[in-house]
Amino acid sequence: MTRKRRSLIALLLTSAGLLITPLAQADIVLSGTRIIYKGDQKDVTLRMENKGPRPLLVQTWIDTGSENADPSAIAVPFTVTPPVSRVDAKRGQTVKVTWTGSQKLPDDRESLFWFNALEVPPKMSDAEAKNKNILQLAFRTRIKLFYRPVNLKGNASDAPKQLTWRLQLSGGKLALLATNPTPFHVSFSELKLVSGGKKYDVNAHMVAPKGNSEMTVKGLSAAPSGAIVEYSAINDFGGAIDGKAKL
């Protein structure tokens, strides 16, 4: 699963004592780990659920891959409505992503964007904050949004097995080079190089359509013979597509 969270931390410490807080986590849970926007769809929807005990303000937007970009300065061919939502505790909110056609995208392959949900908890009242050490967190969740044009050849679920693999040295380290001849992005949750009964972890990356990606093999400095690649790719629904491939 491809998912990133950034914490914007504000600390209010009293003059005495140490800050002790349980491990924090996001309260907003999205209904999927990725969004597939097909070119013949008018719009797609995504459900946000507030699993926490307090209402939250949630800002949503789409970016082109730069996670630090100012949302107000990003130009994308989509709108998200509503852009800001109040989501009560244990309740949900549906947001709609709509294609505007304001930019020309390739029609022979998928295009990648990112959907963002930033949750900001309400400010504690003076009475709640009195004589307390407070840690307030604003979490951001990012998931991939794939724009998939109509009439692409093949099927996204078949794309992982069509990748070709080879070993090469890169900067003195052994790396796998994956080449993707398909029009679909291929993302991995796990990737290993298997040789001589041993499995070596690979620093897996997503492979863009009609592109390639170099991935470092951990703990291996020389190219073995008879090695194979074992992978677990991610399908449109966040599930696994397991397979093996020869080099």
Rank of each mutant, 00 (worst) to 15 (best):
T216N: 08
T81M: 07
V207I: 11
T14Y: 05
R3V: 14
A89M: 08
D27H: 14
F188T: 00
R5V: 12
T21A: 13
Y200T: 01
K210P: 01
V84I: 12
S157L: 05
L19T: 02
A227K: 07
P149E: 06
T98W: 03
S85D: 07
G219E: 12
S111D: 06
A178I: 07
T14L: 11
P224K: 03
D158N: 11
D27S: 11
I241F: 02
T21M: 09
A204F: 01
F115W: 07
D70H: 10
P53F: 07
S225D: 11
E49M: 13
V120I: 15
A223I: 08
Q162K: 15
L137N: 10
T64R: 15
W99Q: 04
P183L: 11
Q103R: 12
V95C: 09
A89W: 08
L169Q: 15
S66K: 15
K246M: 07
T14R: 14
L135I: 12
S225C: 05
Q136W: 02
S189W: 00
L23W: 07
T64E: 10
A240Q: 13
T79R: 05
A223G: 05
A204P: 00
V229P: 03
L105P: 12
T79Q: 04
L137M: 15
K90N: 09
K218D: 05
D201E: 13
I9T: 13
S125V: 06
L46F: 11
L11K: 12
D158E: 15
H185E: 09
F139Q: 02
A245I: 01
K173M: 06
A16T: 14
R5H: 10
R6L: 13
A204S: 04
A233I: 00
N116Y: 04
G92K: 12
L191R: 00
L152T: 07
L176W: 01
Q93A: 10
V80Y: 01
K4V: 14
G196D: 02
P122Y: 11
A227P: 10
E230T: 12
N116P: 01
R6E: 12
P224L: 03
D126L: 13
Q162S: 10
V80F: 03
K218N: 12
S170W: 01
S31F: 10
V202W: 00
L193Q: 01
K4W: 14
Y147H: 11
P209M: 05
N155A: 09
A233G: 01
N155W: 05
G172H: 02
K199F: 04
T141D: 07
R6H: 12
V87R: 02
H185C: 06
V194P: 03
G239D: 15
A24E: 13
A75M: 11
I74L: 03
A245P: 00
A89T: 08
A208P: 02
A208R: 06
E67F: 15
D43P: 04
Y200D: 01
G171N: 01
R34D: 06
L57Q: 09
E49H: 14
V229W: 03
L167A: 13
I134H: 04
Q41G: 06
A26S: 13
V202R: 00
P53G: 10
L18F: 10
R3P: 14
V120F: 03
P82T: 07
L137G: 03
V29D: 07
L167M: 13
G39H: 09
V207E: 00
Q136P: 00
D108E: 14
L46V: 14
I36S: 11
P83H: 06
G17L: 02
